[in-house]
Design a protein around this nucleic acid. Structure first.
Lengths: 230, 230
DNA sequence: CCAAAAGTGTTCATCGTACACCCATGT
DNA sequence: ACATGGGTGTACGATGAACACTTTTGG
């Protein structure tokens, strides 16, 4: 019958690098879980799952993220496809990796806990199964590039955030201290944020003004050829 | 037996966006072929093929490129994986797209011809099958980004080339006229090129000096934290 | 009144960009 | 001598980087 039938088929998996920002520790974290099946049972791994018939790749990635966090409407992006022969010793698996940016507090903590998942700082990753360490490294690099040139940092913070909070996030992503005067000037000069009449008072006596990212302003600027850069 | 067997398997294909630079027309071109099998027989498509058991994805991409051009040792990079359900009406196929940069003249013209393949300017792409147009567009965007920040333009030119030739290439990639004084200054200031004692005399009376990209110089600069940018 | 974080301006070097003329040579 | 493409230098504005003090307020 069809030409296609002459060819071999493969298991196709989706693995997700899920990033979150821990404001307290000013650290970027990854959501990892302990594998509850063979091979490599009991070891740390990324959240993953298999592609199903009748399901688009992007949808599989969303489904798997939702299983773990209960979240929908999350920033996700395809990262890379890992297709070495022996990357998974159990079987030949083609794995399409995605990375996601979530607001840690918005996730369903109960659900996360039930999966045996934990937020781990990227600065102290444990050994991961298979090629998952390479996946995280690649995801981090891509995140660093994206954060510089697209307004996605906001995906990792609550809707209301302060400038010092945002700066802390960028410092965690780049793993580098930034100058607060330069950071603030550049950020505000883009005119993407809306200043709220409310202060965050937890982390300082003086209090820091809350801001909110305005996607509409960003769309407008894009149309005029604006390029985000931080 | 194994956990994996519960899951469905899929055809996995590799499709390649093969770029070449036509010096005469100062145009960036893509190598396309007429499909000689169903579905969509007789229509323009990218070069592609199926992943085999025991073959890594990158190797499949190399094999397929080699089938068409006879070339090995070519710059190739994984682009994106296309996994919509109905992207190929014939069957569910997951396609991992790669893009390649080749020196047109180095390819085996006979082989290319036998496959019914043709170099087509990106500025006048015909309609392509399935989602291949989206693949080319994505590849072009990635090429534009890569060319700006990594010294890969040289992959599209002969080993010996002149500054005006290189500028023509960049103008084709960016689809934009560049200032030759600024281009030359920036390029040479990076100290990546070796000037040869030989002139190209075809395209002008005066003749233009040949240069050669020096990968060793580039490696050295990289170690010192250098960032290529054009 | 003191500690702790928020907020604010200026200077300087660097880089991107715009721009016009001379050079070498084959016909 | 002239036409054609190769090759060169300068001036200006914009941008990124470095840097120190004042403000607010809860305890």
């Amino acid at each position: 019958m069809s030409y296609y039938q002459e060819h071999e088929k493969f298991h196709v998996a989706v693995d997700s690098i899920i990033f979150g920002y821990d404001e307290g520790g000013r650290e970027l974290k990854v959501l990892l879980l302990k594998r509850n099946f063979q091979p490599a049972k009991g070891n740390w791994s990324l959240m993953g799952g298999f592609l199903k018939n009748g399901e688009a790749l992007d949808d599989a990635a969303k489904r798997i993220l939702n299983q773990l966090t209960g979240l929908t409407e999350v920033y996700m992006e395809q990262l890379y496809t890992f297709g070495e022969i022996d990357r998974d010793p159990g079987a030949r698996i083609i794995s399409v990796a995605y990375f996601a940016l979530i607001k840690i507090n918005a996730s369903d903590l109960e659900l996360v806990k039930n999966h045996g998942a934990t937020w781990i700082p990227i600065s102290s990753l444990p050994q991961l199964i298979f090629d998952h360490t390479a996946m995280v490294e690649r995801a981090l690099k891509k995140l660093q590039i994206r954060a510089r040139t697209q307004p996605i940092g906001f995906e990792l913070l609550p809707d209301k955030f302060t400038i010092p909070q945002l700066q802390g996030l960028y410092e965690a992503i780049y793993n580098k201290i930034l100058d607060k005067r330069n950071f603030r000037r550049k950020l505000l000069s883009m005119d993407l944020l809306e200043k709220l009449e409310e202060k965050e008072k937890e982390s300082s006596r003086k209090g820091a003004w809350y801001y909110r990212f305005d996607p509409k302003k960003y769309e407008d600027l894009l149309k005029r050829g604006f390029n985000f850069e931080l």
